[in-house]
């Protein structure tokens, strides 16, 4: 159901905006994501594991903080 909704949403997006973006890029639902080691805004190094809450993680990829 959720997938169908996303698909419908994606199709609606194509019709109105027409920007070439791959269908749902990145790891699929059910796949395990790659680990990483990145510095946060304080300069402290963070791996994926250190970011989890008790139930998981909302991981956002965004364009830029400066544009």
């Amino acid at each position: 159901m959720a997938r169908k909704r996303l698909l419908l949403a994606a199709l609606a997006g194509v019709c109105v905006w027409g920007q070439a973006v791959p269908d749902s890029p990145g790891p699929a639902v059910g796949a395990r994501v790659p680990g990483f080691d990145l510095a946060d805004q304080t300069g402290q190094s963070r791996n994926l594991h250190s970011l989890f809450g008790p139930k998981g993680l909302m991981l956002v990829f965004f364009r830029s903080a400066d544009w």
């Binding site: 194509v14 973006v21 749902s24 990145g26 699929a28 395990r32 991981l59 956002v60 965004f62």
Partner: peptide
Amino acid sequence: QYGIPYPGTFVLDKSGVVVEKYFEKDFRQR
């Protein structure tokens, strides 16, 4: 701008498996 991602959000479970993902067709939408 080279190096920017397609913006979107993953919800991961405790083991790093994708439970849900939200990606828009157009990067101006989020």
